[in-house]
Design a protein around this nucleic acid. Structure first.
Length: 714
DNA sequence: GAGCACTGC
């Protein structure tokens, strides 16, 4: 308590003259010879890095930054690409606090992605000449490289949000920096709302929102006209070209443009990056360019070789690594990529960017509760980001495969933030746990559609996580502490009672990772055959359990053996090993919450029904009933659906519970399990109260009555 | 008989 009030005074007392003194002092501290963080002498490597740091654009404005930092509680900072903001700003704050003797608390710097948090923390610990995990550390899921001496903590935004749930005052920090705020991830958005409220409660807490230029004003307004500091970047100019007319087929034009560049731009002048929307398209483009470039070289042997690489998220890591190889002498490389190369991955040497103007985007329809991926036009901000990829090492060129008029009138300024496109059940539950009671008047930066909120509240109420007044129940409180969607969290918590906790742990872990089933285009039959050995014809969930159990068995022979087994059976060992980590984390939470970790044996007659009943407890709202042959109708929304062709459920059970409703070439339900009507009416009597089903539900009502009516009998 | 852009706890 006492040191908090002292801190308030310190920052208030700091006028400009005082500030210059501290800046001089901190510079002196940085100059050595001894490292104030450790007491030991600085290494020679440190001074090499220091001189480079002092050439960064942010360094020039260090004093200006500190002045605004001291005079305001909240500030917005815009640092363009190459300004050094992510590494330097947190260090400026750390040094300032050190000079002022404010070293009891920590500085947090959030990142939307784990790799960024890890790599920046490593870089900054090198710059400060300390061991990673000591004064500088990072904290991401499954990996905490921090210690009691950590002052500067890089972390994912999701991690800080999790932390806030057990400590809403975020009391261990005296400065919180939200980096890449313009990306508007769900976690960053919620953190901004929380910090705005927390700022009033903790006047000594400093908040810095770091963002791209376009969004700065929006954040300034949101934070009651917080001051802005802009620092230029260090990139090279990129010349942008548009097509004179609309392109019928962007894939064809992309291929043509690649060949054109390769043919006409000087050999060795730089590599090409092409933005496409998905795996199929990318593989197709690679094949096409491969064939045509061979032809081109045959006709004109003076043309150099072209190395072609695909790049997308589901590609195995060693394949992804290939994009960093140097091109052959006298040649160049071309990378066909999804959006992954827009922010997550940076390839050096790119000089030409080809932008199709499209990407796959998730859209959520709250009315029928369906999420789908649609190929949609990108935003202007995205287009700018893509173009910027060409100017990292030297001046570049960006070829936009659409007209300038289309860019001007058809692209929206910025992509819609995630909060406007997602199912919010999880977020609402988190907010409730964070103590936000009045969601209607909650100060969102962009408030989600009322219908999305209503859907989420309704779902949480049916699940028993919120009571009829919208208050968090005991179940809701427990679910909010489990890193899963509420449906899965409820299933998991009840699995303890249904005597199948170990099994549900495996199933929900498998459902939280990318599908473990690999299906290469040239070995579909083999992959399907391999999958069939695990398949349960009435439950895809149990199929997942079968795969996981077998993986665990293989792991007893060693990691290498298990990976080899996975490979031979067309399974992704990356997914499987992530599932194992997730499972471990969930099991720990379950133990901590006092649930008994029950288990059921495969030889028991109730093995499958226990698992299925637990699933019904979380998924009773996601059930479809058979209307003819393979055609189903969803209970709640009366949508006609088909079982997804990837399902191993070959029979046509009357009632099916499903994990996902996906809209692609048809309406599909994916990851399904047969359930008994009697379980539905027993486990969710309020939801399956036939008297409330309405006039058009005669058939469903009769099904439920006929098949669920005989309570107590099997 | 079809598809999974990307991220996070």
């Amino acid at each position: 308590m006492s040191h908090k009030s002292k801190k308030v005074k310190t920052s208030e007392e700091n006028g400009m003259s005082n500030l210059q003194t501290t800046l001089k002092e901190t510079i002196k501290l940085e100059d050595g010879p001894n490292n104030p963080w450790t007491g030991s002498e600085y290494s020679s490597k440190y001074f090499d890095i220091l001189s480079k740091r002092r050439e960064l654009p942010v360094h020039v404005q260090r004093e200006q930054f500190l002045k605004i930092f001291h005079e305001n509680q909240i500030m917005v900072f815009v640092g363009e690409t190459g300004s050094g903001k992510t590494t330097q700003i947190p260090q400026f704050v750390a040094m300032e606090y050190l000079a002022l003797g404010l070293t009891d608390n920590q500085i947090a710097c959030t990142q939307p992605r784990r790799v960024a948090a890890m790599s920046v923390a490593q870089r900054v610990s090198d710059e400060m000449d300390v061991t990673l995990g000591q004064q500088v550390g990072y904290n991401i899921r499954f990996d905490d490289k921090t210690s009691a001496s950590t002052r500067l903590r890089y972390m994912t935004d999701g991690m800080l949000l999790r932390e806030a749930m057990s400590d809403p005052d975020m009391s261990r920090y005296n400065c919180i920096i939200l980096d890449e705020a313009h990306e508007r991830t769900l976690a960053t958005d919620i953190l901004m709302c929380l910090l705005k409220m927390l700022a009033k409660k903790r006047p000594e807490l400093k908040i810095i929102v770091m963002s791209a230029t376009l969004d700065a004003e929006k954040f300034q307004t949101y934070f009651d006209n917080a001051p802005l500091l802009t620092v230029g970047g260090r990139t090279y100019p990129v010349e942008v070209f548009y097509t004179p007319e609309y392109q019928e087929d962007y894939l064809v034009s992309a291929v043509r443009t690649v060949l054109q560049i390769h043919k006409t731009e000087p050999a060795g002048s730089g590599d090409i990056l092409v933005f496409l929307t998905g795996e199929d398209e990318i593989e197709k483009a690679c094949e096409k360019v491969g064939l045509e470039v061979d032809q081109m070289i045959r006709e004109d042997p003076k043309i150099g070789p072209l190395d072609i690489y695909p790049l997308y998220g589901s590609l195995p890591p060693q394949q992804q690594q290939k994009i960093f190889r140097n091109p052959q002498a006298g040649g160049r490389k071309v990378v066909f990529s999804t959006n992954i190369a827009e922010t997550s991955l940076t390839i050096d040497g790119i000089v030409y960017v080809i932008d199709t103007g499209f990407s796959k985007q998730k859209v959520y329809n709250p009315r029928i509760r369906v999420e789908s991926l649609l190929v949609s036009p990108i935003s202007k901000a995205s287009a700018m980001q893509r173009a910027g990829r060409a100017g990292r090492t030297r001046p570049g060129k960006c070829f936009r495969l659409y007209t300038q008029a289309a860019h001007k009138s058809e692209l929206i300024e910025q992509s819609h933030p995630e909060i406007l496109r997602a199912n919010l059940s999880n977020t609402i539950l988190e907010l409730k746990k964070l103590g936000v009671d009045d969601l209607v008047h909650f100060d969102f930066i962009d408030p989600p559609a009322p219908e999305t909120m209503m859907r989420a509240l309704e779902e949480l109420n049916y699940l028993g996580c919120l009571d009829d007044e919208g208050n968090l129940t005991e179940l809701g409180r427990k679910c909010s502490l489990i890193p899963l969607d509420p449906t899965l969290a409820v299933t998991l918590i009840y699995s303890s009672e249904y005597g199948c906790c170990e099994q549900i742990l495996s199933i929900v872990a498998m459902m939280s990772v990318p599908s473990p089933f690999v299906r290469p285009n040239n070995a579909r039959k083999e992959a399907d055959d391999a999958k069939s050995q695990f398949e349960n014809t009435k439950s895809d969930h149990i199929t997942l359990l079968n795969v996981y159990d077998e993986y665990e068995k293989q792991l007893e022979l060693g990691k290498e053996a298990a990976d080899k087994w996975a490979w031979n059976n067309y399974l992704s060992s990356r997914s499987l090993s992530t599932a194992k980590s997730v499972r471990y984390q969930l099991r720990e939470v379950m133990k901590r919450q006092g649930h008994s970790i029950t288990s059921t044996d495969r030889n028991e007659s109730k093995f499958e029904s226990r698992i299925k009943k637990a699933l019904v407890r979380g998924f009773f709202m996601q059930v479809a009933y058979l209307i003819s042959k393979r055609n189903y109708k969803t209970v709640k929304d009366n949508q006609e659906v088909l079982i997804h062709p990837s399902s191993g459920v070959t029979e046509s059970p009357t009632f099916l519970l499903y994990n996902e409703f996906v809209l692609t070439t048809s309406n599909y339900i994916r990851t399904v399990t047969s359930v008994k009507a009697s379980w539905l009416t027993e486990i969710a009597p309020r939801y399956y109260d036939v008297s409330t089903f309405g006039p058009n539900s005669g058939y469903l009502t009769s099904l439920l009555n006929r098949m669920g009516g005989k309570k107590g009998k099997k």
